[in-house]
Design a protein around this nucleic acid. Structure first.
Lengths: 245, 245
DNA sequence: CAGTGGTCTAGACCACTGG
DNA sequence: CAGTGGTCTAGACCACTGG
């Protein structure tokens, strides 16, 4: 980092300077030198230490934040992030129970609870005509006050007419539905996505953060009960399964 | 975007300018105006259209690229990305067969095939003493020449002594292991991660891109055969399961 | 208040692609 | 060659946090 390099140029064959700074920070964390919650040097400090502009130091910190390695807070500083909890995959468990089983406190935020009309996707999933009335809820579930699941759910009003009258702060949709329309079948799809703006805001993470997105269609003996989209911040959740053959 | 705004300032209460540009691009894509493979305006064009500096236009394009919405190529331009394929979850299927089942061409790149010593994590997973000799392979699997899985695998040399002598361009590790040490049990963990630099390079995606990471420990009657880490680009892969109760 | 991160500018040089 | 995206600078103003 000592030789003079002209603007916008990188030494041939070497990595970009922001990448060198990222590597340095990762190395400190992996060696244990910088533990979780350790406050890493500020943008200005790194810019000085590595003889780069603040924008370049900033890029290193921003990318590591996007990658879940660091956490930034305006006015406070940048800190080393910490590891993750875990959930179940082959069962359809109630998130509140999962959290309680970990000995953590559970809470939620109800963002929407309304009747709406079925989009093409929702109508196909629930086996209803397009434009039919469906119930729609959006709830954020919190583990020790930290958002851990964004739940968007469409429910068949014929099978669960009382859905909108429930108090979901007391019992989650999963808990309620399991009681009134026992589960006989579930289709699940799992994928990784970058959070969009809506999800990012709800989960208090940056747009683009890697998230586990689970689509789940649940059926009871009477038909398809609901269609849910569950989004978990990648660094705050895992799914596990033990298979036997 | 017409009023003069001083440097570094945003109109109070409004979103940042890069966010406005992102929203505009998303709107074009969602309305169908810009289909997959459509070439979006260049950084300079957007900078001119929105009266911002190129760095600000660039930020909008970069973030959308990180989020899997766009694909960028130096010298060519920036293009609208397209939707995704899908795989299976409850079985342990051979990726080459999955790809063939979709009617696509399969190929792979063998990055490593070596003997090494077991780290703490690997020794625990395989039930060996720390520092024991283990076989290690790193292979990238391609679907129609597009990287779709980064497979890093540690194998127990006692149970599969011929592992390093195999030609994995002809039969994948999964295929070979299934033949010589039939599967009796598998532990699977699924999570979302942002790609690190190694994985990003191997999968030809940007560091930080959302990926599905699957940890899988496979056992046969004789013991734990191998411990694998499978990383899929989030926008190129899905896992599905149908559960019955 | 000084220090932090967040947004933004107007330039620069570079590697890479197609024609 | 002109046009594209990739890296980088040296400044600016801002909102926010703690003391």
């Amino acid at each position: 980092m000592s030789s003079q390099i002209p603007t916008g140029t990188t030494e041939p064959g070497s990595q970009p300077r922001y990448a060198a700074i990222k590597a340095h920070i990762r190395a400190q964390i992996e060696s244990g030198e910088w533990a979780a919650h350790f406050r890493v040097p500020s943008e200005n400090q790194l810019a000085h230490d590595f003889s780069v502009s603040r924008m370049t130091a900033r890029r290193a910190l921003s990318e590591l934040t996007d990658e879940g390695v660091l956490i930034r807070s305006q006015g406070l500083g940048t800190f080393v992030a910490e590891p993750v909890p875990a959930g179940s995959l082959l069962e359809v468990r109630n998130i509140a129970d999962e959290i309680a089983a970990r000995g953590h406190s559970y809470a939620n935020r109800i963002l929407k609870l309304e009747q709406t009309t079925a989009s093409t996707e929702v109508s196909v999933a629930l086996g209803l005509a397009e434009g039919s009335a469906v119930y729609h809820s959006v709830i954020v579930h919190l583990d020790n006050d930290l958002p851990i699941q964004f739940e968007e759910r469409y429910t068949n009003p014929t099978l669960v007419p009382e859905y909108l009258q429930q108090d979901f702060t007391a019992a989650t949709p999963n808990e309620y539905l399991t009681r009134v329309a026992p589960l006989t079948e579930a289709d699940t799809t799992v994928e990784a996505i970058g959070a969009d703006d809506t999800v990012g805001e709800a989960l208090e993470i940056k747009s683009g953060t890697a998230c586990l997105q689970i689509w789940r269609r649940t059926k009871s003996s009477a038909g398809t009960v609901s269609f849910a989209r569950l989004v978990h911040p990648g660094n705050r959740y895992r799914l596990g399964a033990q298979l036997r053959f």
